[in-house]
Design a protein around this nucleic acid. Structure first.
Length: 574
RNA sequence: GGACGGGUGGCCUAGCUUGGAUAGGGCAGCGGUCUCCUAAGCCGCAGGUCCCGGGUUCAAAUCCCGGCCCGUCCGCCA
């Protein structure tokens, strides 16, 4: 475990506790280490749990346990304090282990060894009917950060965007493109196909609402599409491709890119739907109602007004569930684990899908990661009502505000340099604001909060990284570091944070959560800033200078990797 | 009606899976701090019924039960 210093520390403490338990004839209790209050050590083991069996007071047990603890080079001091046994760590040894781990792993410090698993992560998957708006972008931001995090966690990750190019919405879009002339449309907000074509989509929506007879046209188009009409499929595919190009351009600005695009129409053209439909129809759980088919999910824990999950229409065409199942079976053949990022409104649907996959004896399950929607102070975002914030506008605003800040703070820089900094600061602020919060929290979008550049924000983290780089750039080559030269509280505390990165990554990857990594990166930046105030590096005498330089270098690596894991730029100056 | 998610100082948020020592942070507010590696920083002050009520426990923000509030879903739509 040379790559994970903190793991090494806990393993050693665990060994000591077990030995002490045996010596005192206490039952082996897998210790859950806690962090004691400041100044009371580094690891704490509560002894309350032993009290009943031992029939002794916790403080007494703590004293006995502490006394029975074998000597260890890791913990020069183990003491009882109330009902706790507190371990004081050997700071020099931890520094040595941490700096060695960073040296051994190099730029990969914090990356876990490859676990050999192919993980398919689906995210974003918006219907290509218009530009990306802020509500949906949370999906992309969470998905992309998760992909980066899981790569750090040792997975071989493929990100995939499911392009829906066969639904009613897409037919409507195609109809709008064909039947609504440019002369009847307002000028587009931006000169790009996603902005241009979404006007046709909105117009088509408005017209079908006003004139229900149009629905027959639309329905016949849907029918043709679902029966593999190659010409129509091609046409819609082409339109979707143009809008998707716009969406991809927006995402690219956020540094979000996909490894794979899966076109839903390929399921139909590839004949993947029919076999799945047949397999489903053969299930004993299937019911029939007026020529249509469903699975009653009530026995599987689904409750509500209607537990019937229809997958075949009375005209024999497949419904979305069938295609979703076919898609997932296809996914499963291409990976070892499948994750999909979904909005909270898809919770039930996801449960239904997973039950169906199980009934079909699918070889894998799909793991959903849910997030709540982003609303505006004035209420819900809605494309149809035009109450939405486009991601492009959000990015522009973020970058503009960042540019104002950079100009204020760095008059010495060239305009090109300021623009470059403004770009990663603005985009970083946006990304971090989503990444730092638990996905299940609903968010009310406020400009001032989304574009905060101080305190717990991306620029703060980036600034810490830039400062570390600044010191290293001026330092020249350093002598070999002697970890025992690190004795100041600020530098010792920084080392302790540095030691934790691999454990944090492991925890995040296992739980499929990115926000603890954000919290870690912030804690690391905070500790580095304090170190920066308290511990001069370049002007220090040897051997302190070299030791501190090694800590700064380790910080650059660890913080840089944490930043990149969150999808944020790790700048050398700002 | 049912299911699921959230509810932590004025605002935002961590901690909840695995119960433990004064509930961590940030923003906004107030006060300090640039002859010294970038002040997007650092230091300090102030601010809390952890939604409410029961229960379990030596110990509950955390677990259990019952409410309340907010959100989401329960289409032969996708």
């Amino acid at each position: 475990m040379a790559h994970d210093p903190w793991q090494e520390v806990e393993a050693e403490a665990q060994r000591l506790v077990a030995a002490a338990e045996d010596a005192r004839k206490l039952p082996r209790t897998p210790p859950r280490f806690e962090e004691p209050p400041e100044g009371m050590g580094d690891l704490a083991v509560p002894t309350f749990a032993y009290a009943k069996a031992a029939r002794k007071a916790p403080p007494e047990i703590a004293r006995e346990l502490a006394g029975a603890m074998p000597a260890s080079p890791w913990f020069p001091k183990v003491e009882a304090a109330g009902g706790y046994v507190n371990f004081h760590i050997n700071a020099a040894k931890l520094a040595d282990a941490t700096l060695r781990a960073v040296a051994e792993r190099g730029d990969d410090y914090g990356f876990l060894p490859p676990n050999g698993k192919r993980l398919l992560l689906e995210h974003t998957s918006v219907n290509p009917t218009g530009p990306l708006h802020v509500g949906r972008a949370r999906n992309s931001l969470i998905g992309d950060a998760l992909a980066r995090l899981l790569r750090m966690g040792g997975y071989e990750v493929t990100t995939e965007f499911l392009v829906n190019d066969i639904g009613r919405q897409m037919v409507l879009l195609a109809w709008g493109v064909e039947h609504v002339p440019e002369s009847e449309l307002e000028p587009p907000e931006r000169d790009r196909d996603d902005y241009r074509l979404t006007r046709n989509y909105q117009a088509a929506n408005a017209r079908t609402e006003a004139d229900p007879t149009l629905n027959r046209q639309i329905e016949s188009m849907i029918y043709r599409l679902e029966h593999g009409d190659a010409t129509l499929t091609q046409e819609i595919h082409g339109i979707a491709e143009r809008i998707l190009a716009g969406i991809r351009a927006t995402l690219a600005r956020l540094d979000i890119h996909f490894d794979s695009f899966f076109w839903e129409s390929d399921l139909i053209l590839g004949g993947k739907i029919e076999p799945v439909k047949e397999r489903m129809l053969a299930l004993p759980q299937v019911g029939e109602e007026g020529g249509s088919y469903f699975i009653d999910l009530a026995p599987y824990g689904v409750q509500g007004r209607n537990t019937k999950w229809f997958f075949v229409r009375k005209d024999g065409t497949s419904l979305y569930p069938t295609r979703d199942i076919a898609y997932h079976l296809d996914k499963f053949a291409r990976c070892d684990e499948a994750i999909v990022v979904l909005g909270e409104n898809h919770r039930l649907e996801s449960t239904q899908l997973r039950i169906a996959l199980k009934l079909l004896n699918a070889r894998k399950d799909v793991e959903p990661v849910f997030y709540s929607y982003v609303s505006l102070p004035e209420g819900k975002m809605s494309m149809r009502k035009g109450v939405a914030v486009f991601v492009d506008d959000l990015i522009d605003e973020a970058v503009a505000r960042a540019h104002t800040e950079v100009s204020k703070r760095r008059e010495d820089l060239s305009e090109d340099r300021k623009r470059a900094i403004a770009e990663f600061v603005g985009v970083g602020a946006l990304r971090y604001n989503i990444a730092r919060v638990q996905a299940e929290k609903k968010i009310t979008f406020r400009w001032d909060e989304a574009l905060n550049f101080e305190g717990d924000s991306a620029p703060f983290l980036q600034y810490a990284h830039a400062r570390a780089c600044g010191i290293l750039a001026k330092a020249g080559t350093a002598a070999k570091a002697d970890p025992s030269a690190l004795t100041q509280p600020a530098e010792v505390r920084l080392v302790k944070v540095l030691a934790r990165l691999p454990s944090v990554v492991a925890d995040c990857a296992a739980n499929r959560r990115v926000h603890p990594l954000a919290a870690y990166a912030y804690a690391l930046a905070v500790q580095f800033q304090r170190f920066y105030e308290d511990c001069p590096v370049l002007t220090a005498d040897e051997p302190v200078r070299s030791a501190r330089l090694a800590v700064v270098a380790a910080t650059r690596t660890a913080l840089g990797n944490a930043l990149r894991g969150l999808g944020l730029a790790a700048p050398e100056e700002m």
